[in-house]
Write a protein that binds this DNA or RNA. Sequence first.
DNA 1: CTGTTAGCGCATTCAT
DNA 2: ATGAATGCGCTAACAG
Lengths: 299, 299
Amino acid sequence: MKAIAELGYRPNAIARSLVRNVTKTIGLIISDITNPFFPEIVRGIEDKASEMGYNIFICNSDAKVEREEAYLELLLEKRVDGIIFTSARITDTRIADLRRHNFPFILVSRTLPDVQTDYVVVDNRAGAYLAVEHLISLGHQRIAHITGPKDASGALDRLWGYQKAMADHGLKTDAELVKEGDFREQGGYLATKELLSLSSAPTAIFAANDFIAIGALQAINEAGLEVPEDISLVGFDNIHLAGLTRINLTTINQPRYKMGLMATEVLIERIEGRGGADPVQLVLEPELVIRSSTKRLAG
Amino acid sequence: MKAIAELGYRPNAIARSLVRNVTKTIGLIISDITNPFFPEIVRGIEDKASEMGYNIFICNSDAKVEREEAYLELLLEKRVDGIIFTSARITDTRIADLRRHNFPFILVSRTLPDVQTDYVVVDNRAGAYLAVEHLISLGHQRIAHITGPKDASGALDRLWGYQKAMADHGLKTDAELVKEGDFREQGGYLATKELLSLSSAPTAIFAANDFIAIGALQAINEAGLEVPEDISLVGFDNIHLAGLTRINLTTINQPRYKMGLMATEVLIERIEGRGGADPVQLVLEPELVIRSSTKRLAG
DNA sequence: CTGTTAGCGCATTCAT
DNA sequence: ATGAATGCGCTAACAG
């Protein structure tokens, strides 16, 4: 013990990993930690991992397939015990490979159409439905939707929820009321300018995420209009920005911290062999957060 | 080669690490990735690390000494090649231990008074000076300052810069014009309410960071006043929030991405034995970003 | 230049 | 119970 203290001895986890074939390490492939959508997920992951004695390798892929594959290779060489893919673009074949080798992994905020895997997502369809129904309940009928990129499954589901809610309430969804955005401010800004120039402009906009909504806000203000007096606006995600005074966006909350937590829990179950054969697919419920960007339609 | 493909063989980096005594891994101890101040630093770190062939272990400490020490121990056991401490509360003795053992590490956005170490910080004094000078140049004389927590070296430096700028321009800094905040919205909100209730309220406020400024914004609005018409407001850090339309905060930019990049570069130099004996201490220049929360004093 | 071997620091097995 | 030997998969040193 005296020697331990004097020499600063510390057990070598690398040697231990080599013999036990376990590193107590999880790889996390995320598109960009700089995007305010992700930090809470990461925090949830890290908290649960730390509680269970695991460390996290963080890898920013910018949603580029090549970078994801390069990181995947590296993580595998470093013998991580499992991998979490957050909003990953990784191809089906790679994922299928992992499955075939029985390597533990889980998807967060992304599903794959043709491969059965563990995942944790929010119910995007239900969330969008909630958003649009809220607008309808306020008397809006001419409701526009600015979508996310059409290769994102979440964006498609939100579009679906929008259309369903409109149809269920007997409202028609003019093609000109649906604009494609890119999940970023710029796209929301441009799409909104188009919407405002329509001969019959919408009285409300459901943006597929909060960034789009913030872009929309800017376009609306620049046109000399006010939210919610002239136009109601609903976002999606409930990122921290949305709650700021001066923004105060009505939006759909996505329980990101919890998603990270639960994904990690499921992954570690698999790693430690306590998981069953069936994939565990968690679909968390979204929640309508009413702030002051929506208002009953005048008249 | 055929066998490699068939069996999915991959070199075992753990075994390699064991023999080479190098893991190509860096530990990052950060207080909370959920705080918008940090993601850009982390991204800078990860980008440079990845470029140099290193992976990053991310550890959220919530600025708690015990958690930092626990993580430190873990990282050392896992034989990371070096550690980056971002805004760490770690004690001098621990740091001194690391130095004594010649273990590579670097501090970002934090210095230690009594220990010589590598670090990367922004020039907080110069930044604060810039902020206050800007207000003075707009004709403000009664300028308040809401500080950060007084145990943060950066907060102290910003207070120093405020006082220096005031003194240099022959303005007196009434004690009642300096309020202590906590680097968060709530503190800024409360401090501002006190400032507004002063018999002679300030015409401008320099907040020690952007969160404080956002809290101040809310207090000002609630009092029925407008920024910048009734009160000018300057923040510090230039987090993403500050640039949103509807916030548009004049602030001091802190080059966070670059700080992460440079810290990692310096650290890897040390790890790979190319560093000199002297500590490398980088003090980056802050920059005034003028948006629309400041205005020439009427009259 | 290719082929063989020792050893990194641990955990596990077997012998004492 | 405690102690000695083996091997995890690789790299580096050495031999042929």
